[in-house]
C-alpha cells in the first residue's frame, strides 16, 4: 500500500497566479494614467487621490485571489474545506472592514481630492474585473486535480 498522499493541489492555482500577475501589470499602467489625469484636472491633491484610489481598488480586488492561493497550500490537509473557506471568507470580511475604515478616514482628508479618488477607484475595480475575465477565458484548466495522465505514446 502506498502511504504517499496524492498531490491534491487544486488546478486553479496557475489561473489565480496569472490573474495576480496581470492585475499587477494593468495596475501599474492604470496608476500612471489616473495619476496624470488626476494631476491635470485637480493638481497635487488629484494626483494623490488617483494613486490611492487605484491602489485601493487593485489591492482589495486582488486579495480574494491571494487568499485562495494561500488557502490552497493546505490542500492535503484533512481540514482543507473548512480551512479554505475560513481563510477566503475571513480574508474577505477583514478586507471590507479595512476598506470601510479607510473610506471613513480618507473622506475628510484635505490632502487629496475625493472625487478623483472615487473615479480612480471605480476605474481600478472595472480594470481588475476585465483582467480577471480575460485571464479566465484564456486559461486552460484540467477537469480533475489528482489524476496523472498516462505518458504520451512513443514512436518506437
Amino acid at each position: 500500500m502506498n502511504d504517499a498522499r496524492p498531490d491534491n493541489t487544486p488546478t486553479s492555482n496557475p489561473v489565480l497566479r496569472q490573474a495576480l500577475v496581470w492585475g499587477g501589470i494593468v495596475a501599474a499602467a492604470l496608476l500612471l494614467v489616473s495619476g496624470v489625469l488626476g494631476f491635470v484636472f485637480a493638481g497635487a491633491e488629484g494626483l494623490i487621490g488617483a494613486l490611492i484610489g487605484t491602489a485601493m481598488a487593485v489591492v482589495f480586488m486582488g486579495i480574494t485571489a491571494a487568499t485562495i492561493l494561500i488557502a490552497n497550500r493546505f490542500a492535503s490537509s484533512d481540514l482543507f474545506v473548512g480551512a479554505f473557506f475560513g481563510i477566503v471568507l475571513g480574508g474577505w470580511i477583514v478586507k471590507f472592514i479595512v476598506f470601510i475604515v479607510l473610506v471613513v478616514l480618507l473622506r475628510d482628508a484635505a490632502w487629496l481630492d475625493t472625487t478623483v479618488l472615487f473615479l480612480s477607484l471605480v476605474a481600478g475595480v472595472l480594470a481588475s474585473l476585465v483582467v480577471d475575465v480575460v485571464v479566465i477565458t484564456k486559461s486552460r484548466m484540467p477537469h480533475v486535480s489528482d489524476v496523472e495522465l498516462p505518458p504520451a505514446p512513443r514512436e518506437d
Partner: peptide, 17 residues
C-alpha cells in the same frame, strides 16, 4: 475543486465590485 474555485473567485469578484 480547482475549476469550482476559479468560478467562485470570479463570482466573488463581480459581487464585491
Amino acid at each position: 475543486a480547482g475549476r469550482l474555485q476559479v468560478l467562485m473567485w470570479i463570482g466573488i469578484a463581480f459581487t464585491e465590485a
